[in-house]
Amino acid sequence: MTAKIALSDVHKSFGPKDVLRGVNLEVETGQSIVVIGGSGSGKSVMLKSILGLLTPDKGSIKIDGRETVGLARRGRADIDHQIGMLFQNGALFDSLPVWKNVAFRAIQNDGMDEAGARDLAVDALKQVELGPELLDLSPASLSGGMHKRVGLARAIASKPEIIFFDEPTTGLDPIMTDVINHLIRDCVQELGATTMTITHDMTSVRAIADKTALLYKGEIIWQGSTEALEASDDPFLNQFINGLAHGPIEVEGQQLDTTPNAEAV
């Protein structure tokens, strides 16, 4: 069976900095994969490469078996149509009210009329447990949690086959984090979509992942099921999921001393 998303030997550099150094990853149809990794590990660059916002220097990215690297924007149109994306800060358009944000794709690409677009927005907002009283509000007047939920409503409004989530719970309180995680899980199950989530929040990983991959220094160094994640004795994975300062993972350009009792020296 062809993987829904398949990355093979993907490289991306910015000047002398190699951000992706041969990423290999496959996501099956209907699977919910969570990519974890520290800041600067290349998660966002990988996501932007899959979305076509960045062009890899080398390697292959296939969606539904179709090569997307080197595809012109117009050639991507039918691929983009099956993709939904929740950005880290929602990325709602300030100049448009909530309903136009949620139904943006339907209005701009399908020429949907105002009444239809408002109905679509009401349905999508209902799926993320928001009411129609928000329809005419400006994104600037929404709280952080509502912003994320409206962003999620926009991502699922066109019923995409693939949904990407970039740090969906960053900056939210624990209760709202749980709300968002459940909404993601429910929406995805309802749509039957394939999802890829970028996060370093282990609560999200446990709540929404079928499969987890650890990205470190531009390479996937571990991948497996959520059960395998908890049982793994991989030192990199253990350091990350337990949030340990000491271990094999280098933190923000500083090589931590990983020898036993290093602190006592």
């Binding site: 076509g52 916002l53 924007r73 149109a77 993709i83 950005f87 709602l92 300030d94 690409n109």
Partner: peptide, 11 residues
């Protein structure tokens, strides 16, 4: 990231 959002919304 609103410009990236536009692109992902096929605009």
């Amino acid at each position: 990231e609103q410009i990236d959002a536009l692109t992902t919304l096929s605009t």
